[in-house]
Nucleic acid binder design. Structure first.
Lengths: 159, 159
DNA sequence: GCTGGGGCTTCCCACCATGGGAAGGTCAAG
DNA sequence: CTTGACCTTCCCATGGTGGGAAGCCCCAGC
């Protein structure tokens, strides 16, 4: 069996979290310092792998490292209230939905513009025209135009 | 009129791009070096503001700086083919839709889990259980589980 | 025993787009 | 001339992640 003490490389393979990131999580105290061999090698138990997998899953669900810090706190707390977990999860869902709305707005705007672009070898293109000077949306005469920017949430790398 | 030569602060206000970012765009050659006064102050013309606004809108549509570099190239090219602009735009739409799909998957998974969490003062919580040991989706017995990570696109800050 | 290759350690660098802030020069109004 | 708002450059931080160098460790094969 692949059971018991492993080096960081094995832990990475077993958990789906890269060795680099495991060290980073340790540095930033997301996870406790790993045990070490006499030579200084990090050693991971099955329990540790369990925790790393937890982290990996939470990342896959788009939680930030700070979010995971809170999740881990609740995970470890046997006296937690599931209400707290639920609140955390739903707050994250709200963030995700917000971001989705923003991206959807961008995509549909751009799609509309692209649909009206001939896409031939002539230079005239409503996409560029719109970027140059946005058409006032028909329902919203240029009145008290809000100057807001999208608002950050999330970017994830492939692994 | 607010027409003619402006300092970087005015240009920032007029374009919606912060002074910091204008300098950054210049450093990275996204825009040509601004003219300077004898004292070294950057000076911006209405043309420059026009370009900065173009950049700002492209950012608002989620284009990366590299994407904008391409857009600007086409914008300046009087012999461009609108097909190239359209291709760029649709490629970006595809990226956006891809990201939306990923976020939507996360959100709906999390929402489902949250719905089955009592959200009371007891500790048991299916959200944590799922993070601990993901339930095999009923339609997909644990066979050749793909080990993919989300895949990066986009993060935007509020301004 | 010695050697080679793969693994581990730490440390620094890069990405992307953005903001913060320090140290110092400039300009216009009072 | 002073004051305060503005400008300049330069460095640092963010969040996660990867790349890579320099140096140590461990095991298998000879």
């Amino acid at each position: 069996m692949t059971t018991g003490a492993m080096n960081i490389g094995d832990a990475a393979r077993a958990s789906g979290v890269s060795a680099k990131m495991i060290r980073y999580y340790e540095d930033t105290a997301l996870i406790p310092p790993a045990a070490r061999t006499a030579a200084g090698y990090r050693v991971y138990s099955d329990q540790d792998i369990h925790m790393l997998r937890f982290i990996r899953r939470a990342r896959d669900l788009g939680f930030s490292v700070e979010g995971i810090r809170e999740l881990l706190g609740l995970w470890r707390d046997r006296d937690r209230h599931s209400a707290d977990v639920k609140r955390l999860a739903l707050a994250h869902v709200a963030e995700l939905r917000q971001k989705i709305r923003e991206l959807e707005d961008m995509a549909s705007t751009l799609e509309t513009l692209a649909a009206s672009c001939h896409g031939n070898d002539r230079p005239d293109c409503p996409i560029l025209s719109e970027l140059e000077a946005p058409a006032a949306p028909p329902t919203t005469p240029p009145h008290v135009r809000s100057g807001k920017r999208p608002g950050a949430v999330l970017k994830r790398k492939a692994g």
